[in-house]
């Protein structure tokens, strides 16, 4: 089979399509990003800087990093375990488990938040028990962490499963035959083979964990300086008409998004063969 190579647009319709695509992307996708910068620096650099270093903003940044630092490693370990069991073994109900794994991608982030309130909130299943023992989950750090874990659960597993499927088990079986232990096989054969795909999955997982809004907004309670992550901090400031403050915080997350995009493109360009997303096309 022959595939058509891209060529410079020659005909009139080609130019119209190209112009439409470029204009559409500029107006619909790029402009909101540019607008973040314009709004943040509307009153100059000094107000921008002072709103980034105010204590509430700093504590929001700290909390965002802390939540991601707990949620991402857990989801990475789960992702590796899930990919290992889905691609290395056959067992009943595998398809069902795979569909459950994909659920967090299809349900609304708001639902990913309220399920925890239904479990651990004041009127939730375990609400009375938690209150009696003075354990706080909702409106506290644990709630933010579990909501983030639920939303970002599939990222690493979904990147590793197709790749490990394609790579097969020959190298690992050879290692076992030669007498290597299970952990030896994993650390010396599997991990080197999947390291870039793992990096890719962790990158997407981290970006989403730090930027998640809907799910954490339900469980956070919006306590300034205590349970406001960076996206929630933006909401609070915006609703208080502190536009510069809100957009200053937004530039940090927009920066994070741009770094993510650059790293993602670099990985896709440099290690295309070692990533699941780009192997098949």
């Amino acid at each position: 089979m022959k595939v058509r190579a891209p060529e410079a647009p020659k005909s009139f319709p080609a130019f119209v399509l190209l112009a439409f695509a470029v204009l559409w992307m500029a107006l619909v996708i790029l402009l909101p990003l540019v607008n973040v910068l314009a709004e943040a620096f509307k009153q100059g650099v000094a107000p921008y800087l002072s709103s980034i270093v105010q204590p509430d903003a700093l504590s929001a940044i700290r909390l965002t990093l802390l939540v991601a630092a707990i949620a991402v490693p857990l989801n990475a370990v789960f992702g590796i375990a899930a990919a290992w069991c889905f691609t290395r073994f056959d067992f009943p109900l595998k398809g069902l488990l795979l569909s459950i794994l994909d659920l967090p991608f299809t349900i609304s982030p708001v639902i990913s938040g309220i399920v925890w309130v239904l479990l651990f909130g004041a009127h939730g299943w375990f609400g009375a028990f938690l209150q009696a023992n003075d354990i706080k989950i909702i409106y506290a750090l644990p709630g933010l962490v579990i909501a983030t874990i639920l939303v970002t659960l599939p990222f690493v597993a979904r990147e590793l499963i197709p790749l490990m499927q394609d790579q097969g088990t020959d190298e690992e079986i050879a290692a076992v035959t030669l007498g290597a232990s299970g952990w030896d096989v994993f650390f010396r054969v599997t991990l080197p083979n999947i390291k870039w795909a793992l990096t890719y999955g962790v990158l997407l997982c981290t970006a989403r964990a730090m930027g998640e809004f809907g799910a954490v907004s339900v469980v956070s309670g919006h306590i300034r300086g205590l349970t406001n992550t960076l996206p929630l901090h933006i909401e609070v400031l915006y609703n208080e008409y502190d536009s510069v403050g809100a957009f200053a915080a937004a530039t940090l997350l927009a920066g994070l998004a741009l770094v993510t995009l650059v790293l993602k493109s670099l990985l896709e360009w440099r290690f295309a063969d070692e990533l699941a997303a780009h192997r098949r096309h």
Partner: peptide, 18 residues
Amino acid sequence: ALVDLPFALPTAVAGVSL
């Protein structure tokens, strides 16, 4: 690369900017 921006940009940022 720009196509992926809506995936990467946190929804709250997109929300206030739009």
